[in-house]
Amino acid sequence: MKKGFLKRLIAPAILGVICLIWILPIAYGVLSSFKSEVEIKDTRFHFIPETWTLDNYKYILENSGNTPIIKWFMNSFLIAVITSVGVALIISLAAYGYTRIKWEYRDQVFYIVLALSFFPQIINIIPLYKIVDTLGWVNKMPAAIVPALASVTNLFLVRQFMLGIPIEFDEAARIDGANDFMIYSRVIMPMLKPVMTVVILFTFTGQWNDLLWPSIVFNDVQKMPLTPGLQLLMGAYGNFNTAPVITAAMISIVPTFILYLFTQKYFLQSLSLSSGVKG
C-alpha cells in the first residue's frame, strides 16, 4: 500500500536526515560541556572532546552559598508549575467567556486586549517594578508568577481552539439543563486536552527560561530562579568561561525536556469529536 510505503520508508528516511543535521548544534553543545575550557577555545575545531572531563559539571553543581544551584532549581520549579496551573485555569475561563457566551462588545474587547499585548514591553519594567513593589512582592515569587498569568498569546491560542468546537455540543448540554460553568468544565475543557497541554508546556518553558524580569525583581541569591542565577557564572567584562555556561544550559534544559516527554502524547491525541453528539 502506498501509504504504508511512505510511512515506513520514505518519510522516516527524509526526516532522519533532517533530524541529524537539526541536532548538530545541540550535540555540539552537549559534547562541549564535557570539554575543558582550553579545548573549547582552541584554534582547531573540536566536535568530540579529546579529553572528556566532568569538571564543568562539578563546578556548576557545587552547591555553594553564592551559587545555590539546588535552591535555584526549586525556585524555578515552583514558579513554573504554579504559573502553568494558574494560566491553564485563568486563561481557559477567559477564553470561554470570549467565545461561548454572547455579550455586547465581546469581540471588540478581545481585539483590544490582543492589540495592547503587542506593544513592545521595554519601558514597561519601570512602572511594573513600582507596581510589584507597591504590592510588596519584590524578591518574592508572586512577582514572577502573577504578571505572567495575563498571557494574552495563550488566551488567543485557547480561544482559537475553542472556536473550532461546534456549538452543537453546548446546545445539547444546555438542553440537558447545564449552566455555563458546567458546560465549561464538563463539555469544553475535556475536548481541549491537546491545547491545554500545549499551554502548560509553553508556559512552563517560558517561565523556566525567563531572564530579564526575574533578574530585575529578585536581588537575593537564595530567592532567584535558575536562569538568572546561572548568569552569575559569567564574568563581568564579558570574559566568561564558555564551558560552564554551555554546561549550565545543558543542565537547565533537563526539566523542560522531561515535561515535553510526558506531554507529548497528550497534544497528539486524535479526538473524534463526533462521539459527544449522540448523547
Binding site: I125, V138, S215, I216, N219, D220, V221, Q231, A236
Partner: peptide, 25 residues
C-alpha cells in the same frame, strides 16, 4: 551581604529601585 549580578542588569536595576525608593542597596 554580597549580591553580584551582571553589570548590564545592575545598571538597569538602579533606575528601577531608585524610582520606587525601595530595595536600594
Amino acid at each position: 551581604n554580597n549580591i553580584t549580578m551582571a553589570a548590564g542588569d545592575m545598571y538597569q536595576k538602579i533606575p528601577t529601585v531608585v524610582n520606587s525608593g525601595k530595595g536600594v542597596p
